[in-house]
């Protein structure tokens, strides 16, 4: 599985009566930006959590750079940005980053923090208490925290929810720059216009990937004029 960042095959996961993943397949090559596109409750977050080693599937195979997710996490290969900002509101931006840096075992803390803050353009907010920041800024700190240890795979769970369009554009510039440095990115979204920025898309519905390809491929395959109607047609066809 050389050159594969993510390999998932027949992944199943059930929470009580709800079957969140029902045989999901997806492969992502190193350096790709792949969008996981689907409505709320389609299993995007569960799949991302499985990749981050937080959910153990009942069936199927999941590997990250050829390793089990837990091992990949322990080796510092994965950066995970959760849907909520997941920061300590009582601490400053710098204190938060310093803490996550220590957990990842990175020694050159100062450089790591400066680089991560530079990437998200928040150098001037270094000493601000996180709870006093706006939602958009918190999201940026959250991204910085996921970047600190220079992971090879970034898992971004709806990173641009509630982010204004200008900032969203900046975010995508960051993502593109990271991919340029060889970082693989899996980003979930239910916003169709974001999807067009990905190298490739996986359309996910009811716990399975119903179609994979570039935005252009998918619209062409569905014979649709835009991605949204392509999603609807492909979903109907798969049902």
């Amino acid at each position: 599985m050389d050159g594969l960042a993510i390999f998932a095959q027949g992944v199943r996961k059930r929470f009580g009566a709800v079957e969140a993943l029902r045989g999901l397949d997806l492969t992502v090559r190193e350096g790709e930006i792949v969008g996981l596109l689907g409505p709320n409750g389609s299993g995007k977050t569960t799949f991302i959590r499985a990749l981050a080693g937080l959910v153990r599937p009942e069936a199927g195979k999941v590997s990250v750079f050829g390793r089990a997710p837990g091992q990949a996490v322990a080796a510092g290969l994965i950066g995970y940005m959760t849907q909520a900002a997941a920061l300590y509101g009582e601490l400053t931006v710098e204190e938060n980053l310093r803490f996550f840096c220590a957990l990842q075992g990175r020694r050159d803390t100062e450089r790591a923090i400066s680089e991560a803050l530079g990437t998200v353009d928040l150098e001037d907010r270094r000493r601000a208490i996180v709870s006093t920041l706006s939602g958009g800024m918190r999201t940026r700190v959250s991204l910085a925290a996921a970047l600190l240890h220079e992971p090879r795979l970034l898992l971004l769970d709806e990173p641009t929810v509630g982010v204004d369009p200008l900032l969203r554009r900046d975010f995508w510039d960051h993502f593109r720059a990271l991919a340029g440095r060889g970082v693989t990115i899996l980003v979930s979204s239910h916003v169709m216009d974001e999807a067009a920025r990905c190298d490739r898309l996986g359309l996910i519905r009811a716990g399975v990937v119903i179609a994979e390809g570039t935005a252009a491929e998918l619209t062409a395959r569905a014979g649709a004029s835009d991605l949204e109607s392509a999603f609807v047609r492909l979903a109907e066809a798969s049902a």
């Binding site: 981050a52 080693g53 937080l54 996490v73 994965i78 995970y80 959760t82 997941a86 957990l103 925290a145």
Partner: peptide, 8 residues
């Protein structure tokens, strides 16, 4: 969640 997705 974030802590558990780290080597901690």
């Amino acid at each position: 969640e974030r802590l558990m997705a780290s080597p901690l």
